[in-house]
């Protein structure tokens, strides 16, 4: 495949040209050293679409996230927004292979230029999000009005989706008692929106929803629910199958974006970028790297400052990496 000029590619991505988005994602996933410069050049040139929103759908397996993603995408398209979907699949075997099955659950109009779906394997990464997920999100954010990220995870297994999404929806199905327990026990981070899918199960779904609402109230009582005070985590009931409750979900996403405000969104993204930069560094140079560079807090501070000054994560981590290597060389540490 031809190696497109990053600047030209960035322009075509801004025009949401599918072939360009696809090509950029192929590049982003490329781990060869020789591609890193081009990746950096591309990411440096991307501008996310004004007012765009990144929505994370997470939750236990089989809750209906893929089906809901498809329904959500359809509703968003009907409202005129373009949509990029990233489906992150945890299934990977020791062969390094993976079966990316989410796509089969979504049926889309292939002629629609305003909708793009990409599957990504976690390829052994823990945390539920693949190595490339942040960068993929950056690319999709430059092309589409909303980016929906689907990832599996719940409870103690940490879900990294919080580091890429502006709005996190936890999707569960009726009868997911364990999720309720996790929330009650404070084991699980509270998402921005709670969705009880499979609402077509009727009374069962309504009961699950009111149980969740009750649990949230209890947590609010002890000051453990929402972080900010201008957002009250809503509990929604949807049926991805019958496509009910989807318009309310979109309204809620809009409301969360409004409540979060541009500054709030920027802050959350910055935190996510900081985390990502740190994990890029860790992936390359490990704990030793952190140590040499002055420890986690010190490094996080440097990252934050660099990002605030306008640098992009991948470049910041590369800089830090070079610094690390310099220090190692000059100090002659093992």
């Amino acid at each position: 495949m031809s190696e497109a000029d990053p600047a030209a590619l960035a322009e075509r991505i801004a025009a949401a040209e599918k072939a360009a988005v696809a090509q950029a994602l192929n590049l982003i996933e490329d781990r060869r050293q020789r591609s890193q410069g081009r990746i950096e050049a591309l990411l440096g040139r991307l501008r996310e679409r004004a007012g765009m929103q990144r929505v994370g759908l997470t939750g236990p397996p089989g809750g209906g996230k893929s089906t809901l993603t498809a329904a959500l995408a359809r509703e968003l398209r009907e409202r005129g927004d373009t949509v990029g979907v990233l489906a992150v699949d945890p299934s990977s075997t020791r062969s390094g292979g993976a079966l990316l099955g989410d796509r089969a659950r979504m049926s889309f109009d292939p002629a629609d230029q305003g909708l793009f779906v990409r599957s990504l394997a976690t390829a052994g990464d823990t945390g539920g999000l693949a190595y490339a997920a942040h960068a993929v999100t950056e690319v999709l954010s430059a092309a589409y009005d909303r980016v929906v990220i689907e990832t599996t995870g719940v409870g103690q297994t940490e879900t990294d989706v919080e580091h890429v999404a502006d709005t996190i929806c936890l999707v569960i199905q009726p009868g997911s008692g364990d999720v309720l327990q996790f929330i009650k026990a404070g084991i699980m981070e509270i998402p921005d929106v709670l969705v009880v899918n499979k609402g077509d199960h009727g009374a069962l779904a309504q009961r699950a929803a009111s149980d969740l609402a009750g649990a949230l109230d209890a947590l609010r009582g002890v000051g453990m629910a929402e972080a900010g005070d201008d957002w009250r985590v809503p509990v929604l009931v949807t049926s991805a199958r019958d496509r009910t409750g989807i318009d309310a979900l979109v309204d809620t996403l809009d409301a969360h974006r409004a409540a979060q405000g541009a500054a709030g969104q920027r802050e959350r993204r910055r935190e996510g970028e900081t985390h990502w930069t740190l994990s890029l560094l860790l992936r390359r140079h490990g704990e030793h790297g952190l140590e040499v560079l002055g420890g986690r807090t010190e490094v996080a501070g440097r990252i934050r400052a660099a990002l605030d000054a306008g640098a992009i994560p991948i470049a910041v981590s590369a800089d830090l990496g070079r610094d690390y290597l310099r220090r190692v060389a000059s100090a002659g540490i093992d």
Binding site: K18, A19, V21, A22, Q23, L25, N26, E29, L99, L100, G101, R103, A104, F108, P110, A111, F116, V117, R118, S119
Partner: peptide, 20 residues
Amino acid sequence: VYEGIRVTPEQLVASALEEG
């Protein structure tokens, strides 16, 4: 990427492109 049954040639190609 497993697409399953009953897709159109157009869908297959769109998937192939988007999925790289």
